[in-house]
């Protein structure tokens, strides 16, 4: 393995070579600390018993110790007739009544609308903030980023008081507004960062060629900052999809999202179903991260090509 072969200069002392290996060992240990908790839940979710740990059967790789029953439970928990044979009616029953399906529907609805709202408002604001003639940039930027910094309990408490007053508590509108708010700082930051490398003379060139400001924005600026907008939007969606405190304070039981369902699962009846859901979420975030990484590499290639 190249990773472990010391590429130290020939004059390195034996102490330095020893330190080289000790340092690598420390780093490997920290990587294990980072990654192991995320990975360990994957095999655990196939447990045939309702434990949060490996059974002796699992360690002996006995097929009987593994099962998909917790994955089945995601679909059947809350169903009217979970034992019925698999059919369209079974699927319809699961879709309509399963606790996790309900949570999934809520998460997706709230997540999509919150993302649309956050991305639109955040991108517009970032375009304004990166114009050279923007007044009060510092204080305004500070205020727009603050929802990310202020402890979530304080935000949720404030919203609970205020939204109750104006009739937005326990409504989807209120929930979507709250989640959009928490997502906007990410959109503002990523789009602003993309805009710093944007060449403003391109807009002037477009205007010179007869484009009005709107055309210049949509035809010239927008395509170039699109990667920033997309990753900002992804951040906003992940923020909403992972949010539980605002849901705890603002939503009624019928509006529970996936994290909210996991929360009550962890507090009330700990069952490995949560591990199955967690495994699905880990795989989803891995796919998300990989696609981000691939698009980033493609973008870098795109940037390199014209100059080459």
């Amino acid at each position: 393995m190249k990773f472990l072969r010391p590429n130290l200069p020939v004059y390195a002392s034996s102490l330095e070579i020893a330190w080289y290996f000790i340092f690598r060992a420390i780093c490997v240990a920290i990587f294990i600390f980072l990654l192991a908790p995320v990975l360990v839940i994957i095999p655990l979710s196939f447990n045939a018993e309702s434990f949060f740990s490996f059974t002796s059967g699992m360690l002996k790789l006995d097929p009987a110790a593994y099962s998909l029953k917790w994955y089945r439970d995601i679909f059947t928990n809350g169903m009217a007739a979970p034992e019925a044979p698999f059919s369209l009616a079974w699927l319809a029953d699961s879709w309509a009544r399963s606790q996790w399906m309900l949570a999934l529907k809520n998460s997706v609805i709230v997540g999509i609308f919150a993302t649309l709202l956050a991305t639109t408002l955040g991108t517009l604001a970032a375009v304004g903030l990166s114009r050279p003639d923007m007044p009060f940039r510092g204080p305004i930027m500070g205020m727009l980023i603050s929802p990310m910094i202020v402890p979530i309990v304080i935000t949720a408490t404030g919203m609970f008081f205020f939204f109750s007053k104006i009739g937005l508590a326990q409504t989807y509108t209120g929930l979507i507004m709250a989640h959009a708010l928490l997502g906007t700082p990410f959109v503002v930051i990523t789009v602003t960062a993309t805009l710093t490398s944007f060449d403003r003379s391109l807009i002037r060139a477009a205007a010179n060629l007869g484009a009005n400001p709107l055309t210049a924005f949509f035809k010239v600026q927008m395509p170039l900052i699109m990667p920033g907008v997309i990753s900002g939007g992804l951040f906003a969606f992940v923020t909403s999809f992972d949010e539980v405190v605002v849901v705890l304070f603002l939503a009624e039981p019928e509006q529970r999202t996936i994290p909210r369902q996991m929360w009550s699962g962890l507090r009330e009846q700990v069952s490995p179903t949560i591990l199955a859901v967690a495994t699905i979420l880990v795989i989803l975030s891995f796919i998300l991260l990989s696609s981000l990484e691939i698009s980033r590499r493609r973008l870098e290639k795109m940037k390199l090509e014209p100059s080459a």
């Binding site: 980072l34 990654l35 908790p37 995320v38 360990v40 839940i41 655990l44 949060f52 740990s53 992940v238 999809f241 992972d242 539980v244 994290p259 996991m262 929360w263 962890l266 700990v270 949560i274 591990l275 967690a278 979420l281 880990v282 975030s285 891995f286 998300l288 991260l289």
Partner: peptide
């Protein structure tokens, strides 16, 4: 990867 993984998932993992 842990950064992008749900906070609830990571907390569940530590409980396990």
């Amino acid at each position: 990867l842990p950064f992008w993984t749900s906070l609830l998932v990571r907390t569940t993992a530590w409980i396990a």
